[in-house]
C-alpha cells in the first residue's frame, strides 16, 4: 500500500512573456535563450501566486471528483509564496474551504517529489487517507530582472494532485547534499538596529554550469536507483516526467540512460522553469493530451537548490 494519484490539475497565469519581450529590456536574444535552454516563453503572475495555486488545486479536486471537505491534509511545495507566513497551503485551504492541517514544504525545484514522499509517509502511518499536494511557484518574483543570466530561465505556474490510498507509487528516493553556493536566495536584510546588516539581496543566484553538471549526474543516478528499487526495466518505462529546468539537461541525461530520448516529456518551451510546479504541470498537460493511460510506468525526476534531488516510479492507475 502506498498511494494513488486520483486527480490532477494545473494553472498558468494569463500573462505570457516571450524571449523577444525579454530581449527588449535585456541584452539577449530569442536565439541565444532558445538554443541554450529550450525555453521560448514563460507565464508570469500579475496578481500574486495564490490565485494560480488555488486554481490548480480546484482543478485537481474536480478531476478527482472530491470535495475540499474530504481532505485530510494539504501539502504545498513552494519556495516563492506571496507570504512568508501564513503558509501558501493555508491560503489554499481558506480559498477552497477545507478544514484539514495544511503546511508548506520548501525543497526548491524538488518540492513535488518531497511532497510525494511526505504524503506516502502520512498514508503509511494511517494519519491520512486523502491528501491534496499542490506545487506552486512565482519564480518571476525571485529573480533579478536587471540581469540576463537567471531571469530568462524561470516562469510561474502551479500544478496539483489529489492523493488517495493505493498502489501507484512503486519507488521513491529523495535526497539532499547541503550545499548552498551553487543556487541560493537570501532574504533581504532586516532593519534590526542591534545587529549588522546581512548581505542578502533577496534575489535568486545560480552557478549555471555547476547546476548543469549536478543535475545531469543526479538525474542519471536517481532514475537508475528507483528503477532498480521498483524492479522495473528501462524498456518498461512509458514516460519520464523530468523537472523542466533546461532541455539541454534532459538531452544530456537521456544520452546517459537506457531510456529512449522521445520518452522524456517536456513543455518548458512555453512554461520556462517553474521550479517545484514543473512536474505536476507537465503531468496534467500530458493527461489532457491523452498521453497517460492506466497501467503505464511513469518516472519522475527533479533536482534543485539544497542541493535537493528526488525521483520516483509511478504505475498509473486512474482511468
Amino acid at each position: 500500500m502506498s498511494l494513488a494519484i486520483t486527480g490532477t490539475g494545473s494553472s498558468l497565469p494569463a500573462l505570457c512573456i516571450t524571449n523577444d519581450d525579454i530581449s527588449k529590456i535585456l541584452d539577449t536574444s530569442h536565439e541565444w535563450i532558445a538554443s541554450r535552454t529550450g525555453i521560448e516563453a514563460r507565464h508570469i503572475c500579475e496578481h500574486g501566486l495564490t490565485e494560480t495555486a488555488v486554481q490548480a488545486a480546484a482543478n485537481a479536486l474536480i478531476d478527482a471528483g472530491r470535495a475540499a471537505s474530504e481532505l485530510d491534509y494539504i501539502l504545498c511545495a513552494t519556495m516563492s509564496p506571496d507570504y512568508v507566513t501564513p503558509a501558501l497551503a493555508c491560503l489554499i485551504q481558506q480559498a477552497i474551504g477545507a478544514s484539514c492541517p495544511a503546511l508548506d514544504i520548501n525543497a526548491a525545484c524538488s518540492g513535488f517529489l518531497y511532497g510525494l514522499d511526505v504524503a506516502s509517509g502520512l498514508f503509511a502511518s494511517g494519519r491520512a487517507s486523502r491528501i491534496l499536494l499542490v506545487a506552486a511557484e512565482s519564480m518571476s518574483s525571485t529573480v533579478d530582472w536587471t540581469k540576463r543570466d537567471v531571469s530568462v530561465l524561470f516562469g510561474d505556474g502551479a500544478g496539483a494532485v489529489v492523493l488517495e490510498k493505493g498502489n501507484d507509487l512503486l519507488a521513491i528516493r529523495v535526497g539532499a547534499t547541503g550545499k548552498a553556493d551553487p543556487l541560493y536566495m537570501q532574504r533581504q536584510s532586516s532593519n534590526c538596529p542591534f545587529v549588522p546588516r546581512r548581505e542578502g539581496d533577496g534575489y535568486l543566484h545560480m552557478d549555471g554550469r555547476e547546476i548543469y553538471r549536478f543535475a545531469v549526474s543526479a538525474m542519471v543516478r536517481d532514475i537508475e536507483y528507483v528503477l532498480a528499487d521498483a524492479g522495473i526495466l528501462a524498456e518498461q518505462v512509458d514516460y519520464v516526467l523530468p523537472h523542466q529546468a533546461n532541455v539541454r539537461i534532459l538531452e544530456a541525461a537521456a544520452k546517459k540512460l537506457p531510456i529512449a530520448p522521445e520518452k522524456f516529456l517536456n513543455n518548458m518551451r512555453t512554461t520556462g522553469n517553474t521550479s517545484a510546479a514543473s512536474i505536476p504541470i507537465l503531468l496534467d498537460e500530458a493527461r489532457k493530451a491523452n498521453k497517460i493511460q492506466a497501467g503505464q510506468i511513469l518516472v519522475m525526476s527533479a533536482f534543485g537548490a539544497g542541493l535537493t534531488t528526488g525521483a520516483c516510479i509511478i504505475k498509473w492507475s486512474k482511468h
Partner: peptide, 23 residues
C-alpha cells in the same frame, strides 16, 4: 561549442580520465 557543451564535455572527460575538473 557553448558554455553548456563545455560542461558536458568536462563531464565526459572526468569519466574517461577518472578525475574531477573544476570548470
Amino acid at each position: 561549442l557553448d558554455s553548456l557543451d563545455t560542461v558536458e564535455i568536462v563531464m565526459n572527460l572526468e569519466e574517461a580520465f577518472d578525475i574531477e575538473l573544476k570548470i
